[in-house]
Simulated assay, not measured.
Amino acid sequence: MDYSSSSSSQLDSGRREEYIDQVKQQLAVAQAQELLQRMSDKCFKKCVTKPGSSLDNSEQKCIAMCMDRYMDTMNIVARTYSSRLQQEMSRMGS
C-alpha cells in the first residue's frame, strides 16, 4: 500500500508542475487581455470624440499612435523594472 501512495505522490508532483505551468500561461493571457482592454479604453476615449458607425482617418491614426505610445511606455517600464530587480538581486547576492 505504501508503494501505491508513493507512486501516486510522484504523479501528483509531476501533475502539479504541469498545473503550475498552465496557470502561469493563463495568467499571462489574462494580463495581456487586460492590457489590451485598458489600452483600447484609454485610446478610444482620447481619440474618438464623436462615436459613430465607423472611425474617420484622423481617429484611426490617433488610435494607432496612442496604442504605439502605450506599448512603448509599457515596454520601458517593464525593462526598467526588470533591470532594477536584477540589480537588487545582485546586491543581495554580494
Results as ranks from 00 to 15, higher is better:
46 K>V: 01
38 R>W: 05
58 S>G: 03
29 V>M: 11
16 R>H: 12
19 Y>H: 04
25 Q>V: 14
27 L>T: 05
69 R>P: 03
40 S>F: 04
76 I>G: 02
39 M>V: 11
37 Q>M: 10
31 Q>N: 14
63 I>A: 09
11 L>M: 02
39 M>P: 01
73 T>S: 12
65 M>F: 01
53 S>D: 12
53 S>E: 14
73 T>Y: 11
30 A>E: 04
73 T>F: 04
47 C>W: 03
37 Q>S: 14
21 D>P: 02
74 M>R: 13
52 G>A: 13
34 E>T: 15
61 K>G: 06
44 F>S: 09
39 M>D: 04
22 Q>C: 08
52 G>P: 00
40 S>R: 08
55 L>W: 06
73 T>G: 02
50 K>M: 12
63 I>V: 10
17 E>L: 15
17 E>V: 08
52 G>T: 02
10 Q>H: 12
19 Y>D: 04
13 S>P: 03
79 R>V: 08
58 S>A: 06
49 T>D: 01
21 D>W: 02
84 R>W: 06
35 L>P: 01
13 S>M: 08
20 I>D: 08
28 A>R: 08
65 M>S: 13
46 K>R: 15
79 R>Y: 00
62 C>S: 04
78 A>N: 02
75 N>T: 13
34 E>Y: 06
26 Q>L: 12
67 M>G: 08
84 R>G: 06
78 A>Y: 15
32 A>D: 05
71 M>S: 07
65 M>L: 15
63 I>F: 05
59 E>N: 00
13 S>L: 12
59 E>G: 02
85 L>T: 06
70 Y>R: 11
83 S>M: 15
55 L>D: 08
59 E>A: 04
29 V>R: 10
40 S>W: 00
83 S>Y: 07
18 E>N: 11
32 A>E: 10
19 Y>C: 04
16 R>P: 00
19 Y>S: 05
35 L>K: 12
35 L>G: 03
26 Q>D: 07
21 D>A: 11
17 E>P: 00
60 Q>T: 07
70 Y>L: 00
73 T>D: 01
61 K>L: 07
81 Y>D: 04
42 K>G: 09
46 K>T: 09
26 Q>K: 14
46 K>N: 08
22 Q>P: 01
55 L>M: 02
40 S>G: 12
24 K>P: 00
24 K>W: 00
23 V>P: 04
35 L>M: 13
68 D>M: 10
55 L>E: 03
29 V>A: 08
24 K>R: 14
67 M>W: 00
51 P>E: 11
15 R>V: 14
11 L>P: 07
64 A>F: 02
79 R>C: 05
80 T>N: 11
23 V>Y: 02
46 K>C: 09
23 V>T: 07
71 M>C: 09
55 L>R: 00
65 M>W: 01
60 Q>A: 14
47 C>I: 03
85 L>G: 00
32 A>P: 04
76 I>V: 15
68 D>E: 07
72 D>K: 14
70 Y>H: 10
37 Q>F: 08
52 G>L: 05
10 Q>K: 13
24 K>C: 05
